[in-house]
Design a protein around this nucleic acid. Sequence first.
DNA 1: GCCAACGTTGGC
DNA 2: GCCAACGTTGGC
Length: 140
Amino acid sequence: MAKTSYWLMKSEPDVYPFERLVKEKKTAWEGVRNFEARNNLRAMAVGDLAFFYHSNIGKEIVGVMRVSKAAYPDPSAKGEDWSVVEVEPVKALATPVTLAAIKADPALKDLQLLRRSRLSVVPVSAEHWKRVLGLAKTKV
DNA sequence: GCCAACGTTGGC
DNA sequence: GCCAACGTTGGC
């Protein structure tokens, strides 16, 4: 069993909020049109965990999800070289972790969310993962 | 609604 | 292969 990797994926809540993922039980993470984000998707393995971040509205990490199917061609981009993964909800955070809270925490200053703010799929280190869960008062 | 950051595209 | 122009993302 390979070591679990951690990620953070962004969605605008008026396009696809975490609550909808909870309701639908799983979704294909479509629409990534950035090479680096795509490569991150392709690096994911089944069982990897990811934070669900609401961009623009909310600007906070609201939940945790699990990769349930590894990368395969994006059905919304036929004939083009894009990928999606399938994810399923794990749980909502007891306390959402806001962007402001992340910025205010020196331990999280190197979080890729801050350093690469425009990238929609970024890796998260195990240390940062634990730290964010601590702030969220949530166990996974 | 504005603007900064930055990835992508296309001309040379 | 460089670089300017352009488009998109996302915070404020």
